[in-house]
C-alpha cells in the first residue's frame, strides 16, 4: 500500500474497523454508488450502497433523501482516500498569496480495498487548494451543523491526469 504522495504519516497504518454508523456523503464511482460513513469515534469508512442495509433505519432514510435531493457526483478517483480534518497549520510564508498549508488529521484508505487502513498524519496543500476544495465539496446536502466535505489532491498533477485519462 502506498500512501498519497503529499501525505506524511505520523506512525504505522493500522487496520480500519469494519462499519460506520452514520452516512456523511454519497457519490458515484466506477459505475457504483458509494457511501461514506462515520462511526462513533469519527472514523470514516467507504461502502457500496447495496452493502449499507445494516445501517440504522434513520441512516438509510438519510441516504434515500440525499439521493432524491440531487443527482450524485461522479468521481474518477480510484484509489480514493478519506480524511477527517483535525486542524490546519500554516507553513512558512512564501512570496505570493497561495502559501503552503498542512492539513492535519486521520487518513483512511485506500478505497476500494479489502483491507483499508488508517493513520494520522499531515497532508501538504495550499490555501487556494483547500478553499477550492471547500467550494467543490460544499454543495453536498449532507452538510449540516456547519460540517462539510472538502475535495483535496493527494497526488501530483501528472498522477491526477494519468488517473483521469
Amino acid at each position: 500500500m502506498t500512501l498519497p504522495r503529499f501525505f506524511v504519516a505520523e506512525g504505522e497504518p493500522v487496520p480500519l474497523p469494519e462499519a460506520g454508523v452514520k452516512p456523511i456523503d454519497q457519490f458515484r464511482m466506477s459505475g457504483q454508488t458509494w457511501v461514506v460513513t462515520a462511526d462513533a469515534e469519527g472514523w470514516l469508512q467507504l461502502a457500496r450502497r447495496e452493502d449499507c442495509q445494516g445501517l440504522s433505519a434513520e441512516a438509510r432514510s438519510d441516504l434515500n433523501a440525499h439521493e432524491l435531493a440531487a443527482p450524485l457526483r461522479e468521481l474518477r478517483a480510484e484509489p480514493l482516500w478519506l480524511m477527517v480534518i483535525e486542524g490546519l497549520d500554516r507553513r512558512e510564508n512564501v512570496p505570493g498569496l497561495n502559501d503552503p498549508v498542512e492539513v492535519r488529521g486521520m487518513l483512511f484508505g485506500p478505497f476500494p480495498s479489502p483491507a483499508p487502513t488508517m493513520v494520522r498524519g499531515r497532508l501538504t496543500s495550499t490555501r487556494a487548494e483547500v478553499l477550492d476544495g471547500i467550494l467543490v465539496g460544499s454543495w453536498t446536502p449532507f452538510r449540516s451543523g456547519g460540517a462539510g466535505n472538502v475535495l483535496l489532491a493527494g497526488e501530483s498533477q501528472e498522477e491526477l491526469r494519468r488517473a483521469a485519462a
Binding site: 468521481l75 480514493l80 497532508l123 465539496g137 460544499s138 466535505n149 475535495l151 488517473a163
Partner: peptide, 15 residues
Amino acid sequence: MILAHETNLRKLLYV
C-alpha cells in the same frame, strides 16, 4: 485524491 470531512467548515474558511 482525498475526500476530507470537516466538522467546523466556518472556522476552516475563516482561518
